[in-house]
């Protein structure tokens, strides 16, 4: 094993170039970098232009409802070094606004439109910021964790009786593994 020389070099380059950036080499060929929201375009541009991370694999969003924050995840890939660079930042959950990066990679536009629709995050100056996947959606953005999908389904669609014999296997699993069901998940019971 090469002791992740290339990964450490990359991480070193990023942390020296920017303040308020910390990161870790998670495992072979995977680097995770955490930073502030306003540094994101700089880090992405630096990784693209200087470090040759020129493939934008994916962009995703995580809802940290307990911390009242959204986490945006940008995943880059270097075709030369074969290393995955994951850049994360957190933004405020109330009135979430993020910088638009589709001038760095045009394909980011599609991900941003989806995240805008599914999480309600507004991107500044996003082209095509209108109805994308959901049609005639009037409710809360559905991928937010405080959106109760079961309740929505019960309200809007017709349930057919006959699922009473379905078991809740989560209690069994938690008892077996000695864990507890987290608080936020307790409302999703069958009872």
């Amino acid at each position: 094993m090469s002791e992740h020389i290339k990964e450490k070099e990359t991480l070193e380059a990023i942390t020296t170039a920017f303040e308020k950036v910390n990161g870790v080499v998670q495992r072979d060929k995977r680097i995770i970098v955490r930073t502030e929201a306003e540094t994101i375009p700089g880090v992405l541009l630096y990784a693209k232009e200087r470090l040759k991370y020129n493939h934008f694999s994916h962009m995703s969003c995580v809802d940290w409802i307990e911390d009242k924050q959204f986490e945006l995840v940008y995943i880059l890939w270097s075709p030369e070094d074969k290393i995955q660079l994951i850049i994360k930042c957190r933004i405020n959950r109330e009135n979430p606004i993020m910088q638009n990066i589709d001038n760095i990679w045009r394909q980011a536009n599609t991900y941003e439109r989806e995240i805008r629709e599914m999480y309600g995050i507004e991107f500044e100056g996003l082209v095509g910021a209108k109805e994308f996947i959901l049609e005639d959606w009037e409710d809360m953005p559905p991928m937010r964790r405080d959106f109760d999908t079961k309740e929505y389904s019960n309200d809007h669609f017709f349930d057919r009786p006959g699922r009473e014999d379905a078991k809740d296997v989560r209690t069994e699993i938690t008892e077996r593994s000695g864990e507890e069901i987290p608080d936020f998940a307790k409302k999703y019971t069958r009872d």
């Binding site: 559905p142 959106f147 929505y152 389904s153 669609f157 017709f158 057919r160």
Partner: peptide, 12 residues
């Protein structure tokens, strides 16, 4: 069955 965008009973 509990999805927000998938209908449950077609015959309605």
């Amino acid at each position: 069955w509990d999805s927000y965008n998938t209908i449950n009973s077609l015959d309605k």
